[in-house]
Write a protein that binds this DNA or RNA. Structure first.
Length: 490
RNA sequence: GUCUCCUUCGUCUAGUGGUUAGGACACCGGGUUUUCAUCCCGGCAACAGGGGUUCGACUCCCCUAGGAGAUGCCA
């Protein structure tokens, strides 16, 4: 049997972790089984529709490198792949269900439904449609339609019996029909289908073999089963993957932190890190391996390695993965990745000058193993491009050192730095070591005031390399500046 | 409230009747180092509880508890 799966997002918000993981699982499942991966846009909610969300969908998929075999842009034999372009299909199918006695017209206005719900709430009854229009006389229905009274089409859900279906991950799931949402809407009054109708009709017409999606959809499966049955269709295989949660165990949402792929991208996460990490929430390969390229996942992904339990999204582990992937980049690649951030933060001219690019070349090896996210770059190397606007006195004078000795250290350091160009880095380091020893200090303590003078911070990339990139002249000037400040303070 | 699903270290997970319950992140120590980071070494830490089944249960069954999701003319 040929495998056809789909990712069917609704363009109502930015692509987020949960959705993309579903997309990834579908994509990997298709690739690993030589099947087809289809992208279908479920744009049937015209109130929440957003063009930005649609653009974001394509951008995100492109950035992650997930391509689809059928769908927007690439076409396919089962199009169109935007549900908004298939309205006639849904209407025809909805009407067919009415003819078969499996669905009915409902003329209840939204106000009535609202009132109904409020009453049910007050009386603590279970909430749901009271099937008011389910058995309207045929003449009344025809009359109301002729009068063009707004209406929807509802599914006639059996009142008795139970619905059973099989989930590849969860096994057999049973539900009493009386516990089902009562007679859900299939076709809205604006002529658009609801998710229930559209998804069933399209999955069938598009030959979808497996529905792979998050467990939040589980409760609506019995409804779908009834729709398939009403049409006389065979349902596809279901596989409901566990959801992605926030630290508090609730469904991951904005209040947990960044959730949209766009945000992660802007913060400087690498697509390979994101893909690798997301894939491991709810899925594993074995007891130890955890580094996977997208290409490897396209080969190795299997449904039977899915976990049933929901997984908490761990931002820290993502950071760790990202750091690992940054370190795997060669200098040229990392340079290209980091340049946009330097530009955006105004550290470079646009376009960058020859001199600036040389500094960037030189600093890449200095920052590579310090970066967790690309966006951290500017804070790390700012001192190479702009003057330091303010020194904190506590930083300049190390603990257990007074202003006088600090000035002495800075003067000795300045002397050595003036001679830097004459020696190699190794020789310079040796000279510094000797000088520190001579003054009875540890190398680290000796270098600290100099580090602060040069970089403006006690935390910085390696000093000698930094000084080389900054240039002796500027370095000496900064040290002299700090010495003056200290003298005044004494 | 009702229905459905879920339950191994703080987190992601391995484990499919017999293991000192393994790995990774985080955390805590230690080492390397020029600060930070990287890197290396070590440590902490789990089978939700109760009943069965069995010679033997993390593994199978039942119950309880806890968590989550769904209960829309949103998907």
């Amino acid at each position: 049997m040929s495998i056809r799966v789909r990712y069917a997002p609704s363009p109502t918000g930015l692509q987020h972790i949960g959705g993309v993981r579903t997309a990834l699982f579908n994509y990997f499942f298709a690739r690993a089984n030589k099947g087809k991966f289809i992208l279908r846009v479920e744009d049937t909610d015209r109130a929440r529709y957003s063009k930005e969300a649609l653009d974001d969908l394509f951008e995100t998929m492109h950035w992650l490198g997930i391509s689809w075999d059928e769908g927007p842009g690439v076409g396919g034999d089962y199009g169109p792949y935007f549900q908004s372009q298939r309205l006639h299909v849904y209407r025809e199918h909805a009407e067919k269900l009415i003819q078969r006695g499996e669905a009915y017209y409902c003329f209840c206005p939204p106000e009535r439904l609202k009132r109904l719900r409020e009453e049910q709430q007050k009386k603590k009854e279970s909430i749901g449609y009271d099937r008011f229009c389910r058995d309207l006389p045929q003449e009344e229905v025809s009359r109301k339609i002729k009068e063009q009274i707004p209406h929807v089409i509802r599914l006639k859900v059996p009142l008795e019996g139970e619905t059973l279906f099989y989930d590849k991950l969860l096994g057999e799931i049973k539900k009493k029909n009386r516990d089902l949402p009562s007679d859900p809407v299939l076709l809205k009054s604006d002529g658009y289908p609801t998710y229930h109708l559209a998804n069933v009709v399209d999955d069938h017409l598009m030959g979808i073999s497996h529905i792979l999606r998050a467990q939040e959809w589980l409760p609506s499966v019995p409804i779908h089963i009834h729709i398939y049955r009403a049409f006389g269709w065979e349902p596809p295989f279901f596989c409901h993957v566990p959801m992605v949660m926030g630290k508090d165990g609730q469904k991951l949402s904005k209040r947990h932190g960044s959730t949209s792929i766009r945000e992660f991208r802007e913060q400087g996460y690498l697509p390979e890190a994101l893909i690798n990490y997301i894939s491991l929430v709810g899925w594993s390969y074995d007891d130890s391996r955890e580094f996977f390229s997208k290409e490897e996942l396209e080969r190795l992904f299997t449904l039977d390695r899915l976990n049933k339990a929901p997984g908490v999204f761990d931002y820290k582990k993502l950071d760790w993965f990202n750091g690992q992937y940054i370190r795997m980049k060669d200098d040229e690649e990392l340079k290209a990745l980091v340049l946009p951030y330097l530009l955006k933060d105004g550290l470079l001219s646009n376009p960058p000058t020859e001199r600036e690019l040389k500094i960037v070349d030189g600093m890449i090896p200095l920052v590579k193993e310090r970066l967790k996210k690309l966006s951290e770059i500017s804070g790390m190397v700012k001192f190479l491009f702009v003057e330091i606007d303010q020194y904190s006195k506590e930083d300049i004078i190390p603990k257990k050192m007074n202003a006088e000795t600090t000035i002495r250290v800075l003067k000795e350091g300045r002397k050595l730095i003036e001679e830097f160009p004459k020696h190699t880095d190794e020789e310079n380091e040796e000279l510094i070591r000797r000088k520190a020893e001579e003054m009875g200090m540890k190398v680290g303590s000796f270098m600290m005031p100099i580090r602060v003078a040069i970089t403006g911070s006690t935390v910085s990339p390696p000093l000698l390399g930094s000084i080389r990139l900054l240039g002796t002249e500027k370095a000496v000037k900064r040290i002299s500046g700090v010495i003056e400040v200290l003298k005044k303070a004494v």
